[in-house]
Design a protein around this nucleic acid. Structure first.
Lengths: 100, 100
DNA sequence: TCATTTTCTAAGGATTCCTTAATATACTTT
DNA sequence: AAAGTATATTAAGGAATCCTTAGAAAATGA
């Protein structure tokens, strides 16, 4: 099983209109190369970030960290959609699923 | 940021009524100790599994792999509930969120 | 094309993981 | 309550993976 993180990370970054360098800066990696090399390695699947790094990148990109690890497309879509809801709305959705 | 995987893995395993050894067997680790030590290390947060291993454990426990990495409780609940739906039902839920 | 930006890669020191063996904790039964 | 059994955890070191650095390759666009 291949990790979905590389593709999801790359597409989320593109959607946020960030270069690897800009994302690198948002993450606190100051000068060039320090961050972009790592981000590239993550996006190409050459290496995997640990959870703390995945969380930081997800926050910087405005997606739930679980989204980066989701290997089912429809479920990934749901996670993204749900991330824009507040707690009450989420509760209502969960209840409506129980009623199916 | 702490990884949610240790706690989620442990609670999912308990819910499935499996010991670390039984889960270890389901994963293909044959004799004792080979698997239980690793699973214990994952559940106590001493070490983190790579994605392939996380996916295998999630499959064995009947939860989406993204659930293991979800750090928001309500979203985690939604992921679990949604995992029992078929594609059509998922599509309908996503649409109903768009309408909010 | 040329200049510039953006992304990718190789190599090695640094870090983390997996295996093994043993210990510790939690149950059960007597 | 102790002994026996099942379950879970830990330490240590060899094995694997990651992070840093420097540089090269692709992509962009004037």
């Amino acid at each position: 099983m291949q990790s979905p993180l590389p593709q999801r990370l790359k597409s989320a970054r593109k959607l946020a209109k960030l270069t690897q360098e800009k994302l690198s800066n948002k993450l606190g990696f100051d000068d060039r190369s320090h961050g972009t090399a790592r981000i590239s390695q993550y996006e190409t699947g050459k290496h995997a970030p640990d959870f703390a790094m995945a969380k930081k990148m997800a926050d910087a990109l405005g997606v739930p960290v679980a989204y980066l690890y989701c290997d089912e497309e429809k479920l990934a879509d749901l996670i993204l959609a749900a991330s824009k809801l507040d707690e009450n709305q989420l509760t209502m959705i969960i209840e409506s699923i129980s009623d199916l």
